[in-house]
Design a binder for these strands. Sequence first.
DNA 1: CGTAACATTGATCGGGTTCAATCTGCGTGG
DNA 2: CCACGCAGATTGAACCCGATCAATGTTACG
Lengths: 268, 268
Amino acid sequence: MQTAAPIVTTPAIAPLTRGIPARREFAVPSGEGAQRRADPDTAARIAETMKLLVEVLEVKRRVVRAGDLVYRAGEAFTSLHILNSGLFKLLSSSAEGREQVVGLRFRGDWLGFCGIAKGRYTCDAVAMDTGEVWTVRYDALLRACAEHPELMEVMHAAMSHEMMRDRDVLISICTLPADARVVAFLHYWADSLASRGLRTDQISLRLTRAEIGNYLGLTLETVSRVLSKLARAQLIAFNERNRRDICIPDFHALDAFIQRREAAAGLH
Amino acid sequence: MQTAAPIVTTPAIAPLTRGIPARREFAVPSGEGAQRRADPDTAARIAETMKLLVEVLEVKRRVVRAGDLVYRAGEAFTSLHILNSGLFKLLSSSAEGREQVVGLRFRGDWLGFCGIAKGRYTCDAVAMDTGEVWTVRYDALLRACAEHPELMEVMHAAMSHEMMRDRDVLISICTLPADARVVAFLHYWADSLASRGLRTDQISLRLTRAEIGNYLGLTLETVSRVLSKLARAQLIAFNERNRRDICIPDFHALDAFIQRREAAAGLH
DNA sequence: CGTAACATTGATCGGGTTCAATCTGCGTGG
DNA sequence: CCACGCAGATTGAACCCGATCAATGTTACG
């Protein structure tokens, strides 16, 4: 059982200088040749959302560290959470006790939608790194939405976005073989970082092989084997002292690798 | 390419007597011993939502028949749709052209959330039976939500509900073996009908084996084999002249069957 | 009656799981 | 400091579930 992180309340009009920055991934050896370009659209959209929230609502800011829970399944739903920084995973444990990673969240994403329907959260939200969570009461949010239609639109867009993302995951899992799923996962992870303006020349996966496998409907051994194969093919490179941190020199080559396998399977 | 269904506009205050009733499943041979009890909560919630909509918004009613599209991927998003009756499937075709069934929808469900984020629908919504769709303009809905907080809550709850449902599907696909997935599917289908007050003593699957398989991440042959096995074990019974219509005499026995398999797998 | 879409069933194959052994890094306590 | 334990990761070998390939059956419909 983790202990709750300290809660820090700041005035709603606090300057929008970023919260606690996430820990540096690790030392970068050479240049930033493999840096994936950031998506200015997404970044702007996120910044605007955060700004709107602070202007219109009372936001409780809370610093979390790796392992902290933002909320827990079964807990009464009263608030939604918007991520200012950090990396988070959503864990859902089914009736029979089997745990499942059902989502990954980043800066700008919302947490807690699952609680609206039934008045209780239905999954755990766990920080995977230092980060800052902005919490708003749902009732206050509803009121604010009524007065600020643009806030309502932003919120709906966030929900819609989350649905589409989940759908993509489902399609990947239903249609792709193991190695393509792992590659899709790496892509998603890197894109998520890139679109938030984080560096992707080297990325820390932060999830164990077991968690990645769980998320992708694979076993940890399969994930490990695929990663080893990709490393052997020089499509990814492990950090030499930590197999959780990888470098993707050429995303295009990664895609090509998968396409080639699909083509090879399709031609006969 | 299907042709669009005729559009029928009715005054917003039209009486709430049900629209065109769905075609009778098929003749029921004996009694209703296997009838699954309806969920009065869900039914009430749906009725209330529908009432609220007509009271507060201009609703365009449209009768659809099997095969009609409510909307199509790529089409500009302007409206959301609420299902008054009928059965619908959501089809998403990925970039590489592979089609995927990404959801099933029933009376009371909303269609079109996927369009909010990007301003375009990202999947096809296809009627699987005669039904009635209520369409509301999204901009009008936003305005109405601002004035009627209860409408906003209902809409958010619908989105939240959809997310949780998708999550359940994901968990099923990630963690269950083939036969358990098929059983889970049957359960979901029957529960969906039951909670809408439809009869479940005999149910028409309406999807081909290929579509069921696609939805569950299985091949059509596997689905067929599992259904045959369940029929052999007398856990389901096919209608004697149509293998798409089945009868589930005892849901509890179905569950037990799956539990037993899991237990057998787990003990060694 | 002929054709096409859907479904069933069998035989075979293979990708991914399962089981098992080993390795690595890391924190802990003697 | 080192020994120890432990969680995570890797790798190999055998197996098995579900996919694939193929043939046949069934229903619907012009």
